[in-house]
Every structure is written in C-alpha cells, then in structure tokens.
C-alpha cells in the first residue's frame, strides 16, 4: 500500500496548496486547471450547438443588432453599446482580480482585500446588467404576430421596426376579455390575454398603408430581413395565429424559438458562473480580511479563485462575439 502513495498523506496540506508539484503547479492549481479545461469544453459544446442551429436556420436567424438595442434609462436604438459596457466591467474586474493576486505575492493584506472587494463589486454590476438584459428581452419592445406555419411577422414603418402600440387602434374585434377572479364563481386562471388581438392588428394594418410587414427571411446579399409588399403582408397576416410580446421558452417576438432558448441557456449558464464566482470571491475576501492567508504564509487561494474568475471573463469574450457580433 505504501508504495502506491507518493507522499505520506499524513501531511495535511491539501488546502495549503498541496505538496508534490508535477509540472511545477501545486495540487490545487492543477485541479483548477482540470476544471477550467472541462468547463471550457462544456461552454464550447453550447456555443457549437448554437452555431449548428444558426447554420441550420441561416436564412432566417434573428439579427443581433435588431434584438439587443437598449440601454437602461435611455430611449432609442443603440445596438451593442450596453453589452460592450458589460464586457468592460468584466474585463476590469479581471484586472482588479489579477492585481489582488499580485498584491498577494507581496503579502500586502490590505491591498489584496481592497482589490478583492473591487472584483466582487464588478461581478455584481455585471450580474445586475445581465438581469436587466434578461428583463428587457423577456418583456420585448415591439411585439409581433405568429402565423399558423410558425413564422414571426414584425411591423415596420419607413424602414424601422415599430411596436404594436404605435399603430394598432380600435377594438379587439374578437370580444375576448381577460378572465379575472371577480368575474366568475369558479375562477381558473388562464394564460394572460395579449393587449391586442390578431383581428385588431389586421384591421389596423389595412387602415394604415404606411405599415409594412417584415418577415424572418434574410436577404443574403444585403444581410437584412426582407420586407414584404403590402399585399403579400396582408396574406401572411391572414395566417396570423397569435400575438407575441417578448420572449419565453416557447415563443418569442424576435424570430426562431430556439434563438431565445439559446439566449436563456448560454447567458444563463454563464451568469450562473459569475454568480458562483462572486460567492467564492466573497468567501476568499473574508478569509483575506480575517488573515487566514497571512497566517498560512501565502495567498495561493486568491490565485486559484483568480483563475476561475478570469475563466468566466474568457467565456464572456466568446459569448459576446458569437451572440452579439458575428
């Protein structure tokens, strides 16, 4: 038995960085690299699946610039600005993290603590931004009509997408009303009724000749969604089945259902990594403040969570490119 154990396990220093150092890396660091490689492959699997699906629907995939266009507190069309801001926040929190590691090498306890604190704040800002981004995505901003053959019809005026509320007028025409508790003896809650009905949208479309319908299909030469003629639009709208506002896992106003599914899944999985990273950073922060690593004689623990934190940043760089840029 003894022969199988390279170093006596009686030395309880696993959490101390570990004794034997193959490849010059301590046990803990090595295990962090193992984890990072496997997690990198997990994320690659997600992004590659996204790539496959996008290639499968290459002629109708939503254009990111038309989906992510909002900045908090500011009205208007600003594609990409906010995600770029999020990227900066994450890169900057990576910088403070690496500065914490650097200060750790010099055994400067206070500096390590402050840099860890800054890193945690950066992580929280990122997570908050992502929550806001999700909220905007789920609520939607324009609304669309889904047809019986599963296509999403959006509305444009003068080449710009407009919201349903910008042109829909009149009555619902389908005599439906949302069922509320006060209206019946036996109340069963159903799906919330959209603000407008398909018939109402149809009537408003007919009434206003400046409104056109944009299909999901992309003009490959111009890389823009094809806008239908008034007549073609009317016949497509005739197939209208339901009004879609915002996004959930089954249907969304941006286009392919699976586009929103991937958005939720990939950014959600990444956001969960950020969330766990913040928790781990908080634990390490308190350990630094309590002087745990000062007593231990080195700050390798900070270095190890640093690796994880940088990895989360690394993943975001790829998500940013493949979700928002390419």
């Amino acid at each position: 038995m003894e022969a199988n154990i390279a170093v006596s396990s009686e030395i309880e220093e696993t959490w101390n960085g570990g004794g034997p150092q193959p490849l010059g890396a301590s046990y803990g660091k090595m295990m962090m690299w193992f984890f990072i490689v496997s997690d990198a492959l997990t994320f690659s699997g997600f992004l590659a699946a996204y790539g496959l699906t996008r290639f499968k629907f290459i002629d109708s995939w939503p254009i990111a610039d038309e989906v992510f266009t909002h900045i908090p507190f500011i009205h208007g069309n600003y594609p990409m600005i906010y995600v770029a801001f999020m990227t900066f926040v994450l890169i900057f929190s990576s910088v403070t993290m690496v500065l914490a590691v650097d200060a750790g090498h010099k055994m400067q306890k206070n500096k390590v603590a402050w840099y860890m604190f800054a890193t945690i704040i950066g992580g929280l800002i990122f997570l908050g931004s992502q929550a806001w981004e999700w909220n905007t995505f789920i609520k939607g901003s324009y609304g669309a009509v889904k047809t019986t053959d599963g296509k999403i019809l959006q509305f444009v005026k003068d080449g710009h997408q407009i919201a349903l509320s910008d042109f829909v007028v009149g009555d619902r025409l389908d005599y439906r009303e949302e069922h509320t508790r006060k209206n019946g003896l036996w109340f069963e809650s159903g799906k919330a009724l959209p603000q407008y009905s398909v018939a109402q949208i149809m009537a408003s479309y007919k009434a206003d000749p400046s409104i056109q319908i944009r299909s999901e299909q992309i003009n490959a030469d111009l890389k823009q969604k094809i806008v239908l003629s008034r007549e073609k639009g009317l016949s497509e709208l005739g197939k209208g089945k339901m009004v879609v506002e915002g996004a959930d896992l089954k249907v969304n106003e941006y286009g392919n259902t699976i586009f929103a599914d991937f958005f939720f899944f990939i950014t959600g999985f990444h956001g969960f990594h950020v969330f766990s990273g913040i928790l781990i950073n908080i634990i390490i922060f308190f350990n630094v403040v309590l002087g745990t690593y000062e007593k231990r004689g080195h700050y390798e623990m900070v270095e190890k969570v640093g690796l994880y934190w940088h990895f989360v940043d690394l993943v975001w760089v790829f998500v940013f490119t493949f979700f928002y840029l390419v």
């Binding site: 910088v95 270095e303 760089v317």
Partner: peptide, 11 residues
C-alpha cells in the same frame, strides 16, 4: 483577447 487573458491574467 483570449490569448491575453490566458497568458497574462491567468499567468
């Protein structure tokens, strides 16, 4: 970017 993050930040 990935190169710089891995090489410089992840050391």
């Amino acid at each position: 970017k990935a190169y710089y993050i891995t090489w410089a930040f992840m050391h």
